[in-house]
């Protein structure tokens, strides 16, 4: 599946939730379910400090594709990370660098990617793209 196709499948999944409560319950479950990063990788150099929550991000390139793992101390942030990783993992660095990630807005979670939110997610997306760009050049 391409990045856009994966984004679309998430949009379709979220379409069934007309209630914010159900939607957040789902995100929280995603956050709880995913063992996102190896504890040994939760080091300061992988830490993205937000004002509200902290995010750890690790990126590797394996056989031409990017492989991300990440974690956060806040569960909603972690759930959104799980979605971002699902979309960007095992993709070509070139495609990641130009991905627009509109699905976040489509599923009504844009507020979590607002710079004023200061939860580390904006910096994390930027960092994911930077990591990919490094692999392109």
């Amino acid at each position: 599946m391409s990045i856009e196709e994966k984004e679309q499948s998430i949009i379709d999944e979220f379409a069934i939730y007309d209630d914010w409560m159900d939607k957040y319950e789902y995100i929280i479950e995603l956050g709880k379910d995913l063992p996102l990063i190896d504890e040994s990788k939760k080091t300061d150099d992988r830490l993205i400090k937000g004002c509200q929550s902290r995010v750890w991000l690790d990126a590797e390139k394996k056989s031409g594709k990017m492989h991300y793992s990440a974690d956060s101390d806040a569960i909603i942030t972690k759930g959104i990370i799980a979605l971002l990783i699902r979309v960007l993992n095992e993709e070509d660095p070139k495609d990641i660098a130009k991905a627009e990630l509109n699905f976040i807005k489509e599923i009504g979670l844009q507020e979590h990617l607002s710079p004023t939110r200061s939860n580390g997610l904006v910096s994390m997306v930027k960092q994911m793209k930077m990591n990919a760009l490094k692999q392109v050049s």
Binding site: W20, Y24, I28, C51, Q52, D73, A74, I75, I76, S118
Partner: peptide, 21 residues
């Protein structure tokens, strides 16, 4: 629970609190 999560969900219920440092 993490304060960010509690604050986010309280906001969904119309309640404005501050979370963080």
């Amino acid at each position: 629970t993490h304060p960010y999560d509690v604050g986010t969900l309280l906001d969904k219920l119309g309640i404005a609190v501050r979370t963080g440092h």
